[in-house]
Nucleic acid binder design. Structure first.
Ligand SMILES: [Zn+2]
Ligand SMILES: [Zn+2]
Ligand SMILES: [Zn+2]
Ligand SMILES: [Zn+2]
Lengths: 151, 151
DNA sequence: CCCTTAATGATAATTGATGCCGATAGTGTT
DNA sequence: AACACTATCGGCATCAATTATCATTAAGGG
């Protein structure tokens, strides 16, 4: 969980016999310039890059998101919309968690070092190499509690 | 997050103008008798009930799992296999979290009251009605760290 | 017991994600 | 700088998990 640059990503890829490509750099760059609190799905990213004239095929987007998540560069989030979202995996003290309303899908971010430390400690204890640690809260937000809409 | 019975489920459903059905009771019962550490997908549950002669259509299974998750009776888990898993949402001190190897999908359960409390406190602070709180750790297990298989 | 309508079951449709393959282009080497 | 090797790309076909549809059934309140 450290901050990646195009250079350090290339180094890590080459070390494993893999390659740096313009597409991978573009995608890393997109996430590095994404505002805190924003999360992109594969489709989101695809459209977003299309609009800035940096179009990348959807296949490559899916492949790269999965690759970067498994390298620990991106966090794979299961919010409440039926598909994965991604954000860059910033180290402490930027690390945060998510509070999700299951009715309206509104998502709040919050920080909690205790939970983070608990995750780090548990991974260490079991000898696991940590990639990401997220405290996810499913709940009903105040306005949805008042609404009469079923479930 | 309290322990449901067929009676209390019926009461809560009726209160919202919904109905208790044999299928819903069967599914609640299946999860209540599931060993700790077991997680079922919709397909798993479908086959499992089929074998004990309590067959329920897959449509109803999907509908009921989603309903119960949104009522807070079941926890919806995003493990590492591309489809959702469910388990009953037991209150403290049975409440637990998951440590997942992203390479082999092996999943360990562990308890951590600190993380649970942090989640409860955060939900309260924002005025959210808590349904579930899970600390999910994505990592690489010791044996997968030694393996040469790419990512 | 009856009426209203929520819920079921069977099937079709959707869709997020992956597999495939010929074409392209990084990387290490000569 | 040119080359060889092969990882990666783009476009498209495919898969599998989930959702939508709708006629039929049955729960629950009066
Ligand atoms: Zn976030
Ligand atoms: Zn809400
Ligand atoms: Zn569990
Ligand atoms: Zn593993």
């Amino acid at each position: 969980m450290y901050a990646y640059t195009a250079q350090s990503l290339k180094a890590e890829l080459n070390e494993r016999g893999w390659r740096m490509t313009p597409q991978r750099e573009t995608i890393l760059d997109a996430f590095q310039h994404l505002d805190e609190g924003k999360h992109l799905s594969a489709e989101d990213l695809h459209e977003c890059l299309e609009q800035t004239g940096q179009g990348i095929s959807l296949s490559t987007i899916y492949r790269t998101l999965k690759l970067m998540a498994r390298m620990g560069i991106l966090r794979e989030l299961e919010l409440a919309e039926g598909h994965k979202h991604y954000e860059i995996n910033r180290p402490y003290p930027h690390h945060h968690h998510h509070l999700i309303c299951v009715k309206c899908n509104k998502t709040l971010e919050f920080k909690n070092d205790t939970a983070l430390k608990a995750g780090v400690r548990q991974a260490e204890k079991e000898g696991y190499h940590l990639l990401d640690c997220q405290l996810t809260i499913h709940a009903v937000c105040p306005s949805c509690q008042r609404s009469i809409v079923p479930i």
